[in-house]
């Protein structure tokens, strides 16, 4: 009973974190599902977003302008990975790792040190974990929730435009896309940029929420993003077919991920094991479609064999 109360009181915090990471996970969805590229830049660009926002806010920049700057920084990071891949012919995973590594230095340079705190008592912020139970607009549940809805609406519109459709086609069938006059390389760069823009935007929110930016804050974020995408698809894939709803299912996936994490911590799991747990869960979920295919294949073979013997 006490555990239940603990969980309930931690719920607004978990949901807030889930909402913040949902923006990041939607960025991962753009590359992993739409472009069919696993982009590891995000581990670096997430921290870049946090660093840029925190430094700008500390220097008295307008809060929303700081968010926009974080988004722009993410766009640039994505452009680097995109060009490493398309212009320099480096495989996308490696291109992402190269950018991610260089962003570590850049993030240190932006902040001047490994960790930069931003105190909500001294500085005005958009959101903070202290406000998760406030009944006001600055409650992260409301601010981030609204931003998320606006972002999903914008992405839904964009991927319905001529340009957005051609990006979807690029991910589904690059050969067909070229034959239809689509500049596949340009679209890949654009898609990776947009993805990292969202990831950095999410990092900017998280830095304010937790009250600091850290060069390591993005470590393993690709796994959290993938977990959200996969959980969302597993639970809502059958009912959510529309593109906007699919993005929404990614957001739900992220929230559920954080509720599950909060639950296992409350139940007494060693917090040091969290990353291992996340990785194992993602690995299993990634394996399931593969196992399913193998099972149906061997099943079909047996069936066929039976027929010929009969």
């Amino acid at each position: 009973m006490q555990i239940f109360e603990q969980l309930l009181s931690a719920l607004p915090g978990s949901v807030s974190q889930g909402l913040i990471w949902a923006i990041m996970a939607i960025g991962v969805y753009l590359t992993y599902r739409i472009l069919d590229v696993a982009d590891l830049t995000v581990d670096g660009s997430f921290a870049t977003g946090g660093a840029v926002a925190v430094i700008l806010i500390l220097n008295g920049c307008n809060l929303w302008l700081a968010m926009l700057a974080a988004f722009a920084a993410g766009l640039i990071a994505g452009a680097v990975t995109g060009l490493l891949h398309t212009f320099m012919g480096i495989p996308p995973i490696l291109a992402g790792i190269l950018t991610q590594l260089s962003l570590y230095s850049i993030n240190l340079k932006i902040m001047g040190k490994a960790n930069q705190s931003i105190n909500v008592n001294q500085t005005d912020l958009l959101i903070s974990l202290r406000w998760v139970k406030d009944f006001a607009f600055h409650n992260p549940l409301i601010t981030v929730g609204l931003v998320l809805i606006v972002l999903i609406a914008l992405l839904y519109w964009f991927f319905g435009t001529e340009m957005g459709s051609s990006i979807r086609a690029t991910g589904i069938n690059p050969n067909m896309s070229r034959a239809q006059g689509i500049n596949v390389n340009f679209n890949k760069v654009l898609g990776i940029m947009l993805s990292n823009g969202l990831v950095a935007f999410s990092g900017a929110f998280l830095a304010q929420y937790q009250g600091f930016a850290d060069v390591k804050m993005g470590q393993g974020s690709i796994v959290i993003g993938l977990a959200a995408v996969i959980i969302g698809e597993a639970l809502f894939g059958k009912i959510f077919k529309n593109f906007a709803l699919r993005l929404l299912s990614v957001a739900f996936g992220s929230i559920i991920y954080y509720i599950v994490i909060q639950t296992v911590i409350t139940l007494g799991l060693d917090a040091n094991l969290l990353k291992l747990l996340s990785a194992v869960i993602v690995a299993i979920f990634l394996a399931i479609p593969h196992w399913k295919r193998q099972y149906t294949q061997t099943h079909m073979k047996k069936h066929k064999g039976g027929k010929t013997h009969a």
Partner: peptide, 14 residues
């Protein structure tokens, strides 16, 4: 997609 072959792909409706 095919009907826009050879044209610039803009932010107009797909």
């Amino acid at each position: 997609l095919a009907a826009r072959r050879g044209a610039r792909r803009t932010l107009r409706a797909g």
